[in-house]
Design a protein around this nucleic acid. Sequence first.
DNA 1: AATAAATTTGAATTATGATTAAAATAATTT
DNA 2: AAATTATTTTAATCATAATTCAAATTTATT
Lengths: 196, 196
Amino acid sequence: MSNLATATRFEFQKDRVLRAAARCFNQKGFSGTSLKDVANELGLTDPALYHYVRNKEELVYLCYVRAADLGREAMDMAIKKGGSGFDVVVNYLTYHVEMMVGERGPIAIMSEIPSLNPEHREEILEVSREHSRRFEELLQAGIDDGSVATCNVRMTGNAIMGAMNWIPKWYRGDAGTAREMIEQYPATLVRGLAAG
Amino acid sequence: MSNLATATRFEFQKDRVLRAAARCFNQKGFSGTSLKDVANELGLTDPALYHYVRNKEELVYLCYVRAADLGREAMDMAIKKGGSGFDVVVNYLTYHVEMMVGERGPIAIMSEIPSLNPEHREEILEVSREHSRRFEELLQAGIDDGSVATCNVRMTGNAIMGAMNWIPKWYRGDAGTAREMIEQYPATLVRGLAAG
DNA sequence: AATAAATTTGAATTATGATTAAAATAATTT
DNA sequence: AAATTATTTTAATCATAATTCAAATTTATT
């Protein structure tokens, strides 16, 4: 196998590890999840995970980096697709929900940032703040172009992000609900946000 | 001190323990929080907590029972106050937010039910489901009396509850934000829910 | 097929933090 | 003020799960 292919396989396996970890962390929390839990989910034993991450803390950290990347990707796609400010908001939420309930999921909710070491914590807090900031910008852009009703963007942003972040707590991966989620959840979140 | 007064003092102290624990659990999760963390918050050492609870698991369990009680209390108050279905929904959310950011807070988010032992888990899941069910009933009552716009009550309920549950993750107890929260958050959550 | 590299394991080791027990202190009652 | 009870502490103990390490196995390369 070539170096490239080796790297690819390694990265692929690592991504499986991160998704399995995300699933566990979302349900039982960082410290409530043992490495054995994560390994079992993949048919491995715990020491095998150390081939992919330095330690448990790094595992969460990487889950959060991945979560941040996917969130940013969803937002970038929505922005690139264009449309009114309102459209961009709805599209972003839809892409993000699709990722959460689709085959790229689950995505770790960043609910235990305090468990990270100081450097990682600061980095994740930063990207997390950045994401909130950008979302509020989207809302503001919508207000400015007249597609979104005037509102407190900070409050509205927190409310919508909270509703998004809570999804992994109750969504249990059945296909029927997944479709329903994608079709209805974003619309539910922005009901009342349309101007006029 | 009389038996009654003794019981009262004990119960009062126990409630302080539960609030301190809720604050810790909300930030660092069940297993991420050591009993030492909780004790320190009260100027005590960890073994002192065993005077109030049997073990750590019971501590979370009681936090969740307390959270459920307060949520139910907020809902009961709103129902008793009356008004249109829409009014009851808004009032319930307002009372609940007031509790969260007021002196009875913080309230533990039930984010780690899987960490409970089977009996406690089943009990908490039950009251939790019951609360969601009742909230959906409030929404449905509002739709029926024409004060709430037609919507998928399951989705809407999940969205609003998610936004509520996420509050403790970002709210950091400053008075200014508390007032803003009480005044604006419930309104933000139901914007677009008003019929007509 | 032989060799090398990557991956996984089983068997220790270690660290952390929950729990227990006995003693000390503080509060309450008589 | 003595006796009793409630509360808290200090100093162990115990359990769990993270981590390490050497060996085994599997996969890729020649």
